[in-house]
Design a protein around this nucleic acid. Sequence first.
DNA 1: CAGTATCCCTCATGATACTG
DNA 2: CAGTATCATGAGGGATACTG
Lengths: 132, 132
Amino acid sequence: MSTRTAAERREEARMAYDAFMSTCPARKLLDTLSDKWVSLILVALADGPQRYSDLSRVIAGVSQKMLTQTLRSLERDGIVTRTVTPSVPVRVDYALTPLGRSLLPVMAAIKRWAEIHIEDVEAARADYDGRA
Amino acid sequence: MSTRTAAERREEARMAYDAFMSTCPARKLLDTLSDKWVSLILVALADGPQRYSDLSRVIAGVSQKMLTQTLRSLERDGIVTRTVTPSVPVRVDYALTPLGRSLLPVMAAIKRWAEIHIEDVEAARADYDGRA
DNA sequence: CAGTATCCCTCATGATACTG
DNA sequence: CAGTATCATGAGGGATACTG
């Protein structure tokens, strides 16, 4: 018989899950796309490069911290490029890479499903909530 | 001249963002799909109905709280059905609705992009991290 | 079996202030 | 202009215990 308690087994499974998840490509992508600001940045850059200050204006509501942090992780993933022009004051432009651009159709597919089925979802919710 | 400070303007923008986001179908879908357990539940149910206890075994690492909570929200959105069989002990089966099933191709599209481009992303990361 | 109720704690986000 | 550094908070998620 096992010497492990149920809690220990669940703990173990949780760690296995975490290990699996951190190597699962689809999960990583989902984590990236679902970030509060990523989709907005993608859309903002879809029509061409933008300066940092432009992005912070276009994506109203984002804090400097989150904008920088999000752009950095997108840069790290090879989704955007960061180009510094050492003038005074400095100018930094962000642009989509081909990889980043290849994400746009995926976003579009998600958007399409959402727009087609949003009414079904809302009807289901209304029904569910109605049957208190 | 404005009587609002920069902080007030950002605060206002943040609330406008929240209001917009809460009505944006694509964002809602992204929030749902990116939930830690939703995709696993979808996959687990893809081949047919499952009992609560089966799900908690197949999806190792999930807590009762999160499994129940996630299933409830999926049920509310019309993505799964919950069927109670009042035997002793009770038996509860969960199954995908047609709506839930229509989500599978979207998941597949995400998975496909991720699997095709994961190497590019990891190369970009290695490069980025290398240039410490 | 299939949950509900409770406490607790971490982590992500945001506000604020400062800088090359 | 384009950030970095620091601190505070609150909501999500987990552990645990109890129940029809």
